[in-house]
Design a protein around this nucleic acid. Structure first.
Lengths: 118, 118
DNA sequence: AAAAGTACTATGTATGGCCAAGTACCATAT
DNA sequence: ATATGGTACTTGGCCATACATAGTACTTTT
């Protein structure tokens, strides 16, 4: 029960949303995403990202093509499938709802909801 | 890989934050919280809430006292410990950071971060 | 040929929300 | 007094996911 662990827990699910969003903006490969996620302080490591991409691909939300690189092994460049685009829309709403719900609770400063019945 | 499941995943960790926040505003017992969480569309069921409260209590963030009710069995009324108050502050920052990070990514509409090096 | 770097893969662990069933107590109805 | 229904809380097992860690394969540099 420490803060770091909670950070991890809060990130669950949101990561999926962020990654789909990044891919929705144009072809990228894993290191591109890692770079952007790190820049946004959405700390992620290889061991998290790659399995997630595989999972999303197996679910039919992503597809990729191999592209030769002039500075290392070939890379998988990902794009969203139509299914992926639809899913991303759904995720977007889910995320907005969650933010709203949380705001509703954390901004609510009334002390009691109703008379206590001791 | 369906939306409902992702909702569950996104809720992880946030729930803890919301519950501590509700308790921070004054003594409440489980059904009070359930009511408020449901009102805020942060869907939660008994089987989720009770174990969570036990976990938070074992971690020393909460304490409770039994209070007799005139309409049923006695209730556990929870309050935050000092440790719990500090933890809540940390959670608050974690949540804000996560929202900012997500916004940073999902509002970023530039197509490419840098020249592609095919 | 060896070393270093890049891209991707695979396995095992821990956490936490959920489901489902169960316990215990109280109030009311019969 | 007994039965019924409601309220409050408990418990055990399941599943999905992020992470740590180690490993594979290929390329470029030295």
């Amino acid at each position: 029960m420490n803060l770091e662990n909670t950070q991890v827990q809060m990130r669950k699910g949101v990561l999926e949303y962020c990654i789909l969003h990044i891919i929705s903006r144009g072809e990228v490969y894993a290191s591109d995403m890692l770079e952007e996620l790190t820049a946004a302080k959405m700390i992620v490591v290889e061991g998290t990202l790659y399995p997630l991409l595989t999972r999303l691909k197996n679910a039919g939300l992503l597809e990729y093509k191999w592209v030769e690189s002039k500075s290392g092994p070939p890379r998988k460049y990902y794009t969203l499938t139509n299914l992926g685009k639809n899913f991303l829309e759904g995720l977007s709403n889910t995320w907005k709802d969650l933010v709203l719900s949380t705001q509703k609770i954390t901004n609510n400063s009334t002390v009691a909801l109703h008379e206590k019945e001791y």
